[in-house]
Design a protein around this nucleic acid. Sequence first.
DNA 1: GGTAAACCTGTACCCAGGTACCGTATGCAA
DNA 2: TTGCATACGGTACCTGGGTACAGGTTTACC
Lengths: 146, 146
Amino acid sequence: MTAGLRTGAVAAAAGVNLQTLRYYERRGLLAEPERTLGGHRLYPTDTVTVLRVIKAAQRLGFTLDEVGELLEAGRHRPGRRPDRGLQARAATKLAEVEAKLTDLGVIADTLRAALAAGCADLITCADSPHCPLPFAELAQPASSRP
Amino acid sequence: MTAGLRTGAVAAAAGVNLQTLRYYERRGLLAEPERTLGGHRLYPTDTVTVLRVIKAAQRLGFTLDEVGELLEAGRHRPGRRPDRGLQARAATKLAEVEAKLTDLGVIADTLRAALAAGCADLITCADSPHCPLPFAELAQPASSRP
DNA sequence: GGTAAACCTGTACCCAGGTACCGTATGCAA
DNA sequence: TTGCATACGGTACCTGGGTACAGGTTTACC
């Protein structure tokens, strides 16, 4: 019987812009809430939790589309369908994150090599055999989605 | 006394779209080349090297604006001005990359924990004390520029 | 000297994830 | 009942790094 939260209250509690609420609603991440007679949104109190979940999942590397699918998957048969659930998606995402870690590791090593070699100018380096910067090979990342 | 390369030849040799050449010219990364009488661009042959350098620097994590500054810094007093040279900027960039590595490491650990704990549904997890997903703390990355 | 390929400029559009602005309408308290 | 905060919908804009298209020249080859 609680009246529900207004957009400002939800946005403040979750630490997001209130435009972001409407944006998430358009994207299908937030269900369309009740309205007052005048048309103002009235959110259920657990909306703040949903927003925190969204933010956490984003932090873990999921796009908003993927977050939407995760929420959807959880909504109507929690735990079933092992290929499309949180476990499978988390495993996939972990592999992506690990690929990115490897790639960034190469980048860091390369920067360290450039520092150690005392490279001073990119164009000069590109012509010098002493420069450790791999101008040709550096072109593409470990997994082809940077 | 070489006549110079046309856009198509440069783009093909460097492996970029020819629209990208004009884009880089607008961004100030490529100097405005000579023109034929009819207005077609004629690039010096080392333009291909410049493009490879740009791509390599991007791969190392520099934005196009930063690449532009690096090229500029190298152009008119190579090696001088120790605070703004390649060395200083590479050191800064290395610190950024290392911060991102740390951050991604936390992400990967969190995903592994979620897998190990068998989390099946985000919303359920958010209410469960057994879930390892840190919905509150996960909000901001290690260094505040994700 | 004809024709096709390459090239020109300018503008619009793409991705993701929002954010801002505008003019109007509602909610709530004094 | 008046006044102000808040919210509404719609649309435009932002970042970064390009890409695409339209409509019109120029160049190159036969």
